[in-house]
Simulated assay, not measured.
Amino acid sequence: MNIPHVVTWFEIPVTDLARAVGFYETVFAAKMVQEPCPSGMTMAVFPAEGTAVKGCLIQHEACKPSADGTTVYLNGGDDLSAPLARAEQAGAKIVVPKTLITPEIGYFAQFIDSEGNRVGIYSMH
């Protein structure tokens, strides 16, 4: 089986959608789109173009934020320093500062978001 993308969709659980949307719009300097969901869920979708993997913030009683589960890495653009600084200014706790993986692979960092989730960010520079 040939799989073009390992990840096809992601959801980051939140307890306060408006607060989380404000946080992530600040971090990535981009507008999120709130969309209706079935089953009493509310969500806001991260902007992405074409065939890029897409994902959302989701609020529902069955979805609980956690710093101990799976870590999603979001695109830090050309240099993750800018969104990482905005994350800290928006109240994130930086748990792994900008760290070189290797020159060929790039950099990563991790923070605890406004909802208590551990989230990663990645860039080549």
Rank of each mutant, 00 (worst) to 15 (best):
S114D: 10
G22Y: 05
Y73V: 03
E61I: 10
M41T: 05
A90T: 04
M41W: 04
I3V: 13
L17F: 02
Q59V: 03
S114E: 11
A44R: 01
T26N: 05
Q59E: 11
S81Y: 04
S114Y: 07
A67N: 12
P4V: 05
D68R: 14
V7S: 13
S39F: 06
K54C: 09
Y24I: 01
E115D: 10
T102F: 01
D79N: 15
S81G: 13
L17D: 12
C37S: 12
G106M: 06
D68P: 05
H5A: 06
M1P: 14
I101W: 01
A20Q: 03
G69N: 09
Q110N: 07
P38D: 02
N75H: 09
A30Q: 12
P38V: 01
I94E: 10
I58M: 15
K93I: 04
T102I: 02
A109N: 08
V53A: 04
M124R: 15
T26H: 10
L57D: 08
I94G: 06
Q110S: 10
K64S: 03
V7F: 05
P97D: 04
G55V: 06
Q34R: 12
V119T: 00
L100M: 14
P103E: 13
E35Y: 05
V53D: 00
S66Q: 12
M1T: 10
A29T: 09
Q110A: 11
I58N: 03
S123D: 07
G106N: 06
N75L: 09
C56K: 13
F111P: 00
V53H: 00
M124E: 09
F23H: 15
T70L: 13
P103V: 07
A92K: 09
K98N: 12
S81Q: 14
G91W: 07
S114A: 15
M43T: 03
P103M: 09
I105L: 08
V72F: 01
P47C: 07
A62E: 06
T42M: 04
V6I: 15
G69A: 10
G55T: 03
G77C: 08
E61C: 14
G116K: 13
P4D: 10
T99N: 07
E25P: 12
L57W: 01
Y122P: 09
G40P: 14
V53S: 05
P38N: 07
A52Y: 07
V14Y: 04
F28Q: 08
V95H: 06
I58K: 14
G91H: 13
P65N: 05
Q59Y: 02
E49F: 04
V96R: 14
I101H: 01
A48H: 02
T99S: 06
L84S: 11
L84K: 12
G40M: 13
E49G: 09
T102V: 03
L74P: 03
T70H: 02
I101A: 02
A30H: 04
T8N: 11
F23L: 08
P38H: 02
F28R: 14
G76V: 00
